[in-house]
Amino acid sequence: MTSKLIQSATHMPPDSNQTVRKFSLGDITANTILVVLFVVIVVPFIWSAIASFQTPLDFVSGKGFLPSEWTLTNYEKVFTDIPMTRMIFNGLFIAGTASIGGVFASAIAAFCLAKVSFKGRALYLSIVILTMMIPPAVLLIPFYTIMYALSLIDTPWALILPHLTGSAFAIFFLRQHMLTIPHELHDAAIMDGCSIASIFFRIYLPLVKGPMSVLIIINFMLHWNDLLGPLIYLNSVEQMTPTAGLSFFRGQFATEYPVLLAGSLVCIVPTTIVFLLFNRQIRHGLLITGLK
């Protein structure tokens, strides 16, 4: 309260001061840097987008910014010469199932570890948290051998199943949220003879929808953009995701580069839509989770 008063009392002089020297050298430099950074980020996208409408002839001649003739051939080739529809479906299936299933499994476990008392609960939680210390690089090869033994190589399940067990981070993160929910809510439900499952689904699940959706959105984007996983596990073109598929077709289309650019732009469309829709949640989620 007092700090607010101080703020409002002291705010006047600096403010009026700033209006006097609105276009100082510092402001001009600052705005120039902001504009330069903006241009540096945007131009590669625009440049690639324009080039993706070029005819192969225009591309080979390599001169001029605008194509002499706008064509959709490159995009047609992305969907005919490269099985992009199939790849997008694979990518959506893997990223969607892994992120939704994984976060859901984590939420159930988090509920159990936050709100149900049983012997060894603290120990179980520490064993879960300890897995966060194990570097993913150490697990890469053993996981491959397990998936190989289960003959899941070259199926989407090799990429989905390891995530359906829930992640230590999501369990920990959602448990923290559930701990803040007062237990009076479920006390009444127990009185009425509700089962533990319906307590989770009716009371807690709706209350952690926010943090769960943040985790699902971020995980979806991470899975969609993943390259190493699909490269390792998926061999046949029909099983590939757009990221692995594009890198696979890179050699074949080296002389038809606009096709690869068109493919790249198609590949970033889903994440762009998700980012446009959930811009605020994603940025907020990255701040509170520290995920990248």
Partner: peptide, 25 residues
Amino acid sequence: LRFVYFYPTTCSVVALGLMWLFIYD
């Protein structure tokens, strides 16, 4: 500005890599 500066982070590394291969050509 916040949206644009953050945007590349959300994009697939493969797509950005292919775009930049073309830029570096």
